[in-house]
Design a protein around this nucleic acid. Sequence first.
DNA 1: AAACGGGTTGAGACCGGTCTCAACATAACC
DNA 2: GGTTATGTTGAGACCGGTCTCAACCCGTTT
Lengths: 358, 358
Amino acid sequence: MSEPAATGSGRREVTVSDVAAAAGVSKATAARALGDYGAVSDAVRDRVLGAADRLGYRPNALAKTMSTGRSNTLGIVVGDIENPFFAQATRGAADVAAAAGFDLILSNSDEDLETEAKAIGVQLAKRVDGLLVAAASSVETQNLRTVIDAGRPLVLFDRTAQGVEADSVIAANRSGARELTSLLVDAGHRQIAFISTTTHPADAFARTDVLPTSSVAERVEGFLDAMTAGGIEHPERHVHLNARREGVERMATRLLTGADPVTAIVASDSLIALGVFRAARELGLQIPRDLSLVAFDDADWTGVATPGITVMAQPIHEIGAEAAELLIRRVRGDGRPPVTRVLKQHLIERESVAPPSR
Amino acid sequence: MSEPAATGSGRREVTVSDVAAAAGVSKATAARALGDYGAVSDAVRDRVLGAADRLGYRPNALAKTMSTGRSNTLGIVVGDIENPFFAQATRGAADVAAAAGFDLILSNSDEDLETEAKAIGVQLAKRVDGLLVAAASSVETQNLRTVIDAGRPLVLFDRTAQGVEADSVIAANRSGARELTSLLVDAGHRQIAFISTTTHPADAFARTDVLPTSSVAERVEGFLDAMTAGGIEHPERHVHLNARREGVERMATRLLTGADPVTAIVASDSLIALGVFRAARELGLQIPRDLSLVAFDDADWTGVATPGITVMAQPIHEIGAEAAELLIRRVRGDGRPPVTRVLKQHLIERESVAPPSR
DNA sequence: AAACGGGTTGAGACCGGTCTCAACATAACC
DNA sequence: GGTTATGTTGAGACCGGTCTCAACCCGTTT
């Protein structure tokens, strides 16, 4: 009497109706038993669940979303998942999401506004319940407005955005940069370069310029703070952007071999620091004797390189986790005004800072 | 006459019907214009598109999937997105997917069968068109069968699975391990440990044991090949598994300080190598004088650590990309028998190998 | 003038769930 | 015994798209 197990391939999916028919009940009742809602007698429930099992029923989450309007899915848009910073933040968010019963859809923006727009469009089309975004630009915020206009909760992480009514979770970048730079200034350096891959239309950086990435903008502020406090004039000229265009190693080489070479570098992230480190080695320069180097993010290599690199560690995992928590709260209906959470960074001193040799 | 732009929040989504009404055409016609299929006169199309724009229409991808049966979405299940290997493979897959118009849904399995089952269940419920999986186990394959039974194309990457009818993309791990180990044997080492975090029920490893992760199993084979070729007897006793349970650093410390300390270590991945590197430093051992170390994967740090670590680099990006390509081909209806693509690894010799000092 | 053909359009079923509402059975109460 | 409460079930609308099919318009052909 028992039927053969579901076999073959390519055949139609088993639906609630199929299960209902097999169990000899109505579709509504079968749905109640399968979806675990409403009232169903124990006998019927067993019968339905048995039939479902026998037929190999798998619920269709999309159909469910269609009728309930909730997908139990969050979207996350990062610059590049290959970047350890984003990988860690994503993991932090994924864990919180999973614990709360949410799935995660991931997209890369490549830090490009158009790609970001496409990614956000896809996420909205998939009716995510809310969106986590490391905004490609803190200034051009139309992509973010799209999310808000669509009525979807939005939480920004790592970067804020001007005039966008959304929660954000960021690190205390300005004070972090200040502290990091002070280390160099206090060691006696005057020729200190700040390097970032953030794009900037002008060749030179001016104090009033607005940078597209708020986290970098804040680090630049902190850098300038410390430089100014150290009595260094016109510190803006030591800010070097667009490092991706020129190539980090090339830029570092240029700064280290020019007419007025730098004796210390603040790297805006660990990938940049890696480029600088390689360039220095290539040039035969010894850290910290010939060059002092500090950076953001406690990447793997910074601890095992020789010498160890002094870094400002960020609570990356927490940034992602906290952002996901805020988002889930919004999804669940929290209507309080937007908040900005600022997480502390902490200094890990290693051996990459010394007084300048010239 | 012009209406106010779509405003407010929380209101119903704009649907095809709304657009149709605003444009004064039927739902069917509006859908044709919006979905760019079927025949629509230019005049009507303009009218519909104009109305859609005015109302802020955003298509509902779920509804589309419901009626077409296609989601244009691939699922990917990795061990842990924070692991650079998986991050890179994911990126490779994401790029290929995006280029072909597919989105990606990501899940972490934590290398755990139950978590993997849940992840795959979610992906299937979301009706992904196909699934990319780095199987948590190459032996217990019920989770993978679930995918096949559901009639969804499946492509495995990094690891194969016994008796599962699916394409796979892996690296030539056995020959890679052989080459890596030979370096040590040829340098004169006899006490060489192979370390992996792969789980294994027994305390000791026996040649006939089947390991849960095929990539590691193959590396062990290659290791044994080279050890045997080098005339080392009972090389199995040098295979150390379950490193996660004990802790990599702890295990390395134990192996380096025991009664019969090892003089060389083959690390099954870069994370393990990092643990070994740290343990060695902690013990005051110098690489390569006191310990020779080789590993899989050309992680960032292996190039900048002192000394540089000799590694077997894998084409990680390509593994992900190739897997996605195969999957998309399957999704599009390719019915050829399953293939296994084996990608070459290549050796990067640095300074972490020297003859044993004892 | 009738028949034919292509281009356009609309009505309505369908995908697979949820959910409202009414119908009915049975038990509890007065 | 009648009324009310409670539990269980089924019919059918609904979510927002796609798609089939029939109807219609208008120009051509015979």
